[in-house]
Design a protein around this nucleic acid. Sequence first.
DNA 1: TATTGAACGCTCAAACTCAATCATATAAAA
DNA 2: TTTTATATGATTGAGTTTGAGCGTTCAATA
Lengths: 247, 247
Amino acid sequence: MLAEQRAEQILRELAQRRAATVTDLCQVTGASEATIRRDLNALAKQGKLSKVHGGAMLLGGEFHGEELDMETKRGLFTQEKDRAARYAAGLIGDDDVVFLDAGTTVLRMAEHLRASKALFLTNSIECACRLMERNLRTHVLGGMLKAGTMALIGAETLAALRRYNFTKAFLGANGVTIAQGFTTPDPEEAAVKSLAAGRAQEVYVLADSSKFGQVTAAVIFPIEAACIITDRLPDRQYRDYTDVREV
Amino acid sequence: MLAEQRAEQILRELAQRRAATVTDLCQVTGASEATIRRDLNALAKQGKLSKVHGGAMLLGGEFHGEELDMETKRGLFTQEKDRAARYAAGLIGDDDVVFLDAGTTVLRMAEHLRASKALFLTNSIECACRLMERNLRTHVLGGMLKAGTMALIGAETLAALRRYNFTKAFLGANGVTIAQGFTTPDPEEAAVKSLAAGRAQEVYVLADSSKFGQVTAAVIFPIEAACIITDRLPDRQYRDYTDVREV
DNA sequence: TATTGAACGCTCAAACTCAATCATATAAAA
DNA sequence: TTTTATATGATTGAGTTTGAGCGTTCAATA
């Protein structure tokens, strides 16, 4: 296995479990302890994880993972970035069957949804709670709960997804480029997004301007597979490849 | 488990309960008293909690210092009604695959779960959140989200349930009688409980004493189909029909 | 007053983790 | 083909962490 792949796998494991011991990572990757230690040192130096005695942990909120996350998210919550979420929410009508994925940008959509008869489906626990607060018809995909993002992923999630068809899907992405398309760090999440898109008539990706030009580990689908909703498009060229709504 | 994880867990426990004894924290983390003491000393030195005789408390709160010592605290948190939940939580071992249903009594179980390698499955969003907070392996059944109880119900939930087999299932019930068996108001929830029980090797119903003699709309299963865990059994006769744990 | 029990900190041995070193293997360069 | 560079796995000795045992303190109780 390539060193690069190992790094991805380590980060993925951390994303899902929040913390992992060196032994755990040896089992997952099949590499020796020495190698894992070397990898952890490298990744820690790159600031991608925090190395602790016995293993590594996801960095970010010291504790209260989500709560702090929510606080900071709300803090970062500028009106400009919110416009995309508001616009996306406005696209939903009474007859829609909507998929919402797990991601901060999509989560914001929930706060702008008006009452409707639409059916909502999501793989995000947080999103499901917001939808319920607004008395919207909500279904949740089953599956393995991932620490950190509180997203449902894995084989069970994909199987559940195959039992639905959507009129519209709203997805988040961490990276958007013309060559690599839409990308996200966790392959498991990418698989869910990709499959959801495949079962939707209209696919929208919500991406704020900072996401353009970024590339992360897992490809979701190519650039032309979704309509982009953004607050500011940094490069006109994207319009040659797909529909872009700059709001 | 990593030392940092333990620290997180201790702080989370405190955030939730305001105070905890050393013994409590041992159970939650699976570590020894010596280790917990060391952790508490370290965290206290970092100013993240206040160490008191017998355990630790959140700092900053309106009650500080001597006003409430551990004795009264322990009284607060070891309430009668919690005993059943605590007992049930103690039944879970590392090799178990556990189903937890949506209900206030079962939800309380989550607060008494110790660290373990067991796999947890639930149809309750709230329960899933609690499980994740404790770093437990958690899966969620898909389905329609029901307002009020935040339980997942419906055909999708039943289908998801058929893909699992459990070693132990812990269920709530609103009514328990010898003639009508276990009952609950919502037929949809009854269907989930019933199916979950059918797929479990051992079935436990958590019911406080007020539930005995009550009958509600939907039958879950007959009285002999589950072991009853309760704080007080009002009528000896139940013992003739099924296993009862009065704790 | 003496006793008991709970909680504490200290110490020690065992288990575990770490970084450094070395040998091997694989791939690129000469 | 030989050489060089890089990556990996094993080994080792040093350093950490952990759980158990022991003596002390303190307060409740006989």
